[in-house]
């Protein structure tokens, strides 16, 4: 636990030691705002809620989260620092968790910095702030899911570009797995049970359920187990590929 804390602090500090953090925050906040007001018609809808804000988060994360996760392990392997890092008296599990939690906290910071939109909607009307909070929780969990996938992919390659593209592709499949694009592929030949299982993998489905204000245990279990599975794969990949 103490080691996770040290790794967490180093990693999180690392984001702010370079322009990476600031570029990311500016782009994220800019795009989140632009999507909400122009594509989401925040004002025209005339509703005191943030659904036009949250609805674009999966698509925003699809591009931006792999940009954060791609460097987590690929950079360590490329620069050789992984040999230093993994010969310190820490376990691989601590290393994986420390890095993941730092990246997740960074996403949390980015998400927290969208607070002006919450102030705006409160100034304009009387939104149900419980639903807004649920939206933020859902968005944070969604970011965690994307990050866990990206972190595992990053451990499998030395190339940050490959890590980015592959993570984005996998995240895309998880995002759209509830849509006809994917389901039609299965529904022609697979039994309904399998189609339902594939549909239940959908990020969007679980995310939308939470942002409606209903925090169902099933949705929490979904995100928690998804993160756990990919972090487990991440640790296995680090162990397997660290020296190659």
């Amino acid at each position: 636990m103490r080691n996770i804390c040290h790794i967490f602090k180093r990693e999180l500090g690392g984001y702010f030691a370079t322009p990476v953090a600031y570029v990311f925050l500016v782009i994220f906040l800019g795009m989140a705002g632009a999507f909400t007001f122009y594509l989401g018609n925040f004002f025209e809808r005339g509703q005191a809620d943030l659904s036009s804000f949250f609805v674009f988060h999966p698509w925003l994360y699809l591009i931006l989260i792999p940009a954060i996760s791609m460097r987590l392990w690929a950079e360590e392997r490329k620069s050789g620092t992984i040999e230093l890092f993994l010969t310190l008296p820490i376990s691989i599990g601590e290393a994986v968790l420390g890095k993941f939690l730092a990246a997740w906290a960074f996403c949390g910071i980015a998400l927290a910095l969208t607070f002006p939109i919450w102030l705006t909607v409160n100034a304009l009307g009387n939104p149900d702030n419980g639903v807004v909070l649920a939206g933020y929780i859902g968005s944070f969990l969604l970011a965690g899911g994307f990050l866990a996938i990206g972190s595992a992919v990053s451990a499998a390659t030395k190339s940050q570009v490959i890590a980015f593209v592959v993570s984005a592709a996998i995240c895309f499949l998880f995002t759209v797995s509830g849509s006809p694009l994917v389901l039609n592929f299965f529904s022609g030949w697979a039994p309904q049970a399998i189609v339902d299982v594939v549909a239940s993998f959908s990020f969007v489905q679980h995310f939308n359920a939470i942002t409606r204000g209903v925090i169902d245990a099933r949705d929490l279990v979904y995100f928690a187990s998804l993160i756990a599975v990919f972090l487990f794969a991440n640790a296995a990949l680090v162990d397997l590929k660290k020296s190659s």
Binding site: A17, T18, T81, E83, L84
Partner: peptide, 12 residues
């Protein structure tokens, strides 16, 4: 342990 090439985090 000093690994070959003395790797260290360049931004720190």
């Amino acid at each position: 342990y000093l690994p070959e090439g003395a790797p260290a985090y360049p931004d720190m």
